[in-house]
Design a protein around this nucleic acid. Structure first.
Lengths: 141, 141
DNA sequence: GCAGGATTTGTTATAAAGTAACACATGCCC
DNA sequence: GGGCATGTGTTACTTTATAACAAATCCTGC
């Protein structure tokens, strides 16, 4: 959180109350949250009650690398890297929705270059591995 | 299509009229189609008019590797590999929704092994690169 | 060829996720 | 302190996806 605040100051981004609240909420939740779950929290805090409020805050966080959208779940997680530019891969537990962020293998570079050779200009790469985390596997699929 | 039919026979899967129609539709469309676009075609062919009809056919095709769901778009494409077991990566044009399927870099293996070492059992990996295809880039972003 | 279980279809209804559009407020810079 | 960019509040709506259950169809062993 401190890191995020610092990153925003450094980049002249406005970490408004709603945005800060959403980021804190995501950081505290150890699972991916849907936009509507976030909205519930916002509403609880008196910061907004309509979907666009949640989507706008989430869009801001994602656009600035402070959060990530997990496509597979249509849900969001806080970034664990303090907002630095980076490409990440995610390990998504299908049972508890916990998400771990890991470095994107350098090998992805190969995919991007190969695509470029074929005339396709890659802008972003989504890598999401779905499976079972340790705890859920022990608890039985 | 022939290949798909053969694959279904080989695996004792029932490629019913609705399923076959959806697969053909996806094969002919050179872009990703949403479930509702598929449903429109189904309705046009008198094969069903309610969302579950489309979702069921699509779920069957995806479950059996005859089609893929593009998470980024919430849309579907026919598999271009005739249904063999395989892990694929996708190049998704954000402008025209055209999707190219390519082999998943062997390097993904590293991600999976690394995850396993950390106690996470990967079951499926989604790799989707978003960007601009050749034609759309020339036409201007 | 037919009983019985499994799979597939048809249908209604509803849930969940995401966006367009526009008026109003706020901050920021000169 | 006027003016422009950015952010907020709100209404209304679109798109995407499922639950649930009854009816039809298909396969399999006999």
């Amino acid at each position: 959180m401190r890191a995020a605040e610092a990153a925003c100051r450094a980049r002249k981004l406005r970490l408004t109350p709603a945005r800060a609240f959403v980021l804190e909420t995501l950081l505290e939740s150890h699972q991916a949250m849907t936009a509507y779950e976030v909205l519930d929290r916002l509403a609880g805090a008196g910061l907004g009650s309509q979907p666009p409020v949640a989507y706008r805050a989430l869009d801001f966080l994602v656009a600035n690398g402070l959060a990530h959208r997990i496509e597979r779940l249509g849900a969001f997680v806080a970034c664990t890297h303090g907002g630095a530019e980076h490409a990440a891969a995610f390990l998504v537990c299908r049972r508890c929705r916990r998400v771990a962020e890991t470095a994107l293998p350098r090998a992805m570079r190969g995919l991007i270059d190969e695509a470029a050779a074929g005339g396709f200009a890659v802008e972003t790469v989504v890598v999401e591995a779905e499976g079972l985390c340790d705890a859920c596997r022990e608890a039985g699929a």
